[in-house]
Design a binder for these strands. Structure first.
Lengths: 213, 213
DNA sequence: CGGGATCCCTTAGGATACTG
DNA sequence: CAGTATCCTAAGGGATCCCG
């Protein structure tokens, strides 16, 4: 059950034995957004081989990190409380890795769950608390998300819906979130295309979601 | 330079591409304690093949996480500021993994650097600040450490030295740190052998260093 | 059709020996 | 001491197939 071990008696070592295998943390990242079915996980991780996904799910289940819940006809995977304790670590990794992202290569994709986690990472509750409640309908690559900011609370759902601001963003969304690209410049250069709503609301978005470069 | 990639444009993904390869986080863990030479790293990671250590050092250097500093005759590896930003993440992983450690298997060892990181993780500055300054000379397995607690500050050095309390601990040190094993019980059962100093000081140690089970 | 299992091949990683 | 070089095993990638 325990993957390849390192022969050391140490908490860090144990952690990487449990979640350090290839793909494991990305599965956990997606499950942090919500319970998922096998096919949903596979769709969110297009390049994971099916046998690896199945193997990881078994290992993570044996480690007490996730649970396999058979519903009628379908199977749901969800994090256990112990698995949920990884949330701050995964978000911190996202914040740290954000700085090394550079520009996307053509084959790199943006998935709904990864973008949701990014938004959670970048969310600044204390800033949001001082701004009016706002709903954003966003599209990043193929990922459509409905982002609701209400006081210091953030809610991200897949799909669209009514919103104060609807926009589609290309890869330069990274520079917008890092502050390297000002909101008005982002619109001017076409990095962000506003589909509906006042363009000034993009500035509110950029203040609400920020990550250091 | 970039290791196997995942094809996703996401901070978490980038992070695991940079530090998710086998052994990488353990190398970083040891470098968090201080700059190390190639041989020191190899000694602290007894089961890492030499070619893998060399490969990881190159990859981590290319990623801007560590620096190769040639001194006269010897080469020193040290974390860059970007690499140092991983410290809270590594400590959090250690704290999370601590809960899944269980009892050590016979082949598992404790190294000086891993134990140093564990002590840093378990250190409670706010508790220590209310206790008198204390020096502990400790031995965990083969790892000898001199632990100085002064107010809210912690300093851990390899080797021995004068101390208020000297003790050697077996694997049950984990239960002492988690609070499952009371200090006096630890001494009574032989889990901790006090070599010098007042045995009551072990209680102070246990209050200063604590991790949830 | 969702949820996997099986196949074959490639490549990272383990063990050990060797070199500047 | 600080790494290469080599050889081999086992994990991972990719496609396909299977079963309820």
């Amino acid at each position: 059950m325990a993957a390849r071990d390192y022969g050391q008696y140490c908490g860090v070592t144990r952690a990487v034995e449990l979640v350090g295998e290839r793909w494991a943390l990305l599965i956990i990242r997606d499950l942090l957004v919500g319970p998922r079915r096998y096919g949903e996980l596979a769709a969110g991780l297009p390049r994971i081989p099916s046998n690896i996904l199945a193997a990881r799910l078994k290992e993570l289940q044996a480690a007490g990190i996730l649970r396999r819940v058979p519903h009628s006809r379908v199977v749901i995977y969800e994090l256990t409380p112990y698995g949920h304790e990884l949330e701050p670590i995964v978000l911190a990794l996202g914040s740290w890795g954000f700085k090394a992202m550079g520009d996307p290569r053509p084959e790199q994709i943006v998935t709904a769950d990864s973008m949701t986690v990014t938004l959670r990472t970048a969310f600044r509750p204390q800033v949001a608390a001082e701004l009016p409640s706002t709903a954003y309908a966003t599209r990043f690559g193929a990922a459509e998300l409905l982002v609701r900011v209400d006081g210091g609370a953030l809610e991200v759902a897949r799909g669209g819906g009514p919103a104060d601001l609807a926009f589609a963003a290309g890869p330069d969304i990274r520079r917008l979130i890092s502050g390297e690209l000002a909101p008005d410049r982002a619109i001017a250069t076409g990095a962000v295309e506003v589909l509906h709503g006042r363009t000034q609301l993009l500035d509110r978005f950029a203040r609400t979601f920020h990550l250091a470069a």
